[in-house]
């Protein structure tokens, strides 16, 4: 009734307008059905699945029949906080994430800047084509190559032994895991991730450089005063997005590379969720709770970085 009265000053009533819209865009509504059905079934329905984090989930009883967890439903969270793996898992995750932000994040920026200085276009094109390649090779193949190359008689081990004189299987060295994980990650991603910076670089006004040359600015000054400010907004946006994934270290690669020797350093939150929920354990409620905490912390990091960035640089994601 109320809606009717609001719309009554318009030409048609609400019902008539809905009817008109349905008739006019009938085909579009038909098209929207499969699209929305996909998102509801495969994306939104699983979101309601998080109730199992507050339950003592039991496969036989199902989502509707399982009893609520103790401590007003928060027992699973409490078990994670007080469990003996809590601190090691948090520490491993944050360390890998920290080193990724320190090394893997700037690598494509530096690479794009260097590539931008290559004047021979044909050479530049070849370099780009070739450095994108590792991005398209499957994670399973990449990881099995890493494992082959770094075992006791692998080719990288052989190369290192030229300097150290000793050989060992680096894949079972806990001290080497982070270096391998992050180093190979840079190798896989540096070319592909640089595309977005290269496209940002190409949109910088070339007249700025000509003006700088007339003013007598050298190459270095041009980079500092024109190039970097020109791609700064891209860098900031990507940095904020990266900060929103602080606790999401890629589990696929962790699971493929880790073994019983390196679990003490390679067990991160996301791989722990898999391990406890489906891999070795069967504690789906517990690992759902851990998963929720991970998403919560990620959202907090995303928001905080975005707020700081808006205050300091005036640009943000939202």
């Amino acid at each position: 009734m109320k809606e009717q009265s609001i719309n009554s000053n318009k030409k048609l009533g609400l019902g008539a307008r809905i009817g008109d819209e349905l008739r006019r865009n009938f085909v579009l509504y038909l098209m929207a059905i499969p699209v929305l059905a996909y998102f509801v079934l495969f994306c939104y329905l699983p979101m309601f699945g998080i109730v199992i984090a507050f339950q003592d989930f039991n496969l036989a009883k199902g989502v509707f029949g399982s009893p609520w967890a103790g401590m007003y439903g928060f027992e699973n969270f409490y078990r994670f906080f007080t469990g003996k793996l809590f601190w090691p898992v948090i520490k491993n995750t944050l360390l890998i994430s920290f080193y990724e932000i320190l090394f893997s994040f700037p690598a494509p920026i530096i690479f794009a800047l260097m590539l931008n200085e290559i004047k021979n276009l044909k050479y530049k094109k070849i370099v780009q084509t070739v450095t994108y390649l590792p991005h398209f090779i499957s994670m399973v193949v990449i990881c099995s190559m890493i494992i082959r190359f770094l075992d006791e008689d692998g080719i990288i081990t052989s190369f290192i032994s030229l300097f150290t004189g000793t050989r060992k299987n680096y894949m079972i060295e806990p001290g080497a895991f982070r270096t391998i994980f992050i180093g190979s990650g840079i190798w896989q991603g540096v070319g592909w991730s640089s595309i977005i910076y290269i496209s940002a670089l190409s949109s910088i006004d070339q007249e700025l450089y000509e003006a700088a040359v007339i003013d007598g600015a050298g190459k270095w000054k041009q980079v500092v005063h024109i190039t970097i400010p020109g791609i700064a907004s891209t860098i900031i946006i990507l940095f904020i997005m990266r900060m929103g994934q602080v606790l999401s270290v890629g589990y696929e690669k962790i699971i493929l590379l880790q073994n019983s020797y390196t679990k003490s350093v390679s067990r991160v939150i996301s791989s722990y969720v898999y391990e406890r929920g489906l891999g070795e354990g069967n504690d789906v409620s517990f690992s759902s709770a851990v998963g929720i905490l991970q998403s919560l912390v990620n959202i907090i990091f995303l928001t905080v970085t975005n707020t700081i960035s808006k205050k300091v640089t005036d640009s943000g994601l939202f």
Binding site: F39, L41, F42, C43, Y44, L45, P46, M47, F48, G49, I50, V51, I52, A53, F57, G62, V63, Y251, S270, V273, Y274, G277, L278, V284, S287, S288, G291, I292, Q294, S295, I299
Partner: peptide, 20 residues
């Protein structure tokens, strides 16, 4: 919304296997 929120690995697994 689905870019920022998801059920997470385990709830998704349960829903896909139990309901779908």
């Amino acid at each position: 919304i689905t870019l920022y929120f998801s059920g997470g690995m385990i709830p998704t697994y349960i829903v896909y296997t139990q309901f779908l």
